[in-house]
Amino acid sequence: MSDATDDDGVEEMKVRRVAGTGVPIRGDDIDTDQIIPARFLKTTTWEGMDEYAFYDARRDDDGELNDHPFNEYKGANVLVVNDNFGCGSSREHAPRALARWGVEAIVGESFAEIFADNCKSLGIPAATADPETVAELQDVIEATPEAGIELDVVDKQVTYGNETVDVSIDEAMHGALVQGIWDTVALLRSNMDAIDGTATDLPYVESR
């Protein structure tokens, strides 16, 4: 997968499918303070983010690594979560930390909006499915961690074992990933004249 900072051609930016193995994180309302505690945001780069993903949850009181899925499922790239995942702060450090740990796609019951937007900015598909489908996926991954799982972004389907189920992907995210236009800087700057026009028409923007 391309890094968001690369200014590659659109072809390399396309995210059409993610295949690999799964990692389940169970629970509703998993907030961004759990995904990455605020003390690890004191940095001016993205370096080291992989070590901070679920930092506190991955450790016992004595600091030893416990049996948290992020310790047990190393190498997995499809994260499967429940309801309202990523709620709380706007910190992009959260999906960055997940991505640098290895997550390339997320399937869940639902996502907090800013979190989903941040995933889109990074080219990480965040697909939603009903609670039964998510529970089934989590059960299967826990029973057979080595089993393959694939998110087909184009056709909005998840395949595991002999099963293929439909999932939903937000329209804008789908378009951005499939077309490879999730790096929005060039896109937005291509409308510079229209930007100036809109600004000029606003009563509170000084003419320039």
């Binding site: 968001a4 702060s89 706007s90 910190r91 992009e92 450090h93 960055r96 800013i114 937007d117 941040n118 900015s121 990074l122 937000d170 804008a172 929005t184 800087v185 896109l187 937005l188 700057r189 409308n191 510079m192 930007i195 600004a199």
Partner: peptide
């Protein structure tokens, strides 16, 4: 609120892509 990549977008274009 916006994420860091969107902060970059706003600095670069004074715009965001939004739904």
């Amino acid at each position: 609120g916006i994420g860091t990549s969107q902060v970059r977008d706003v600095l670069a274009s004074q715009c965001v892509a939004a739904d």
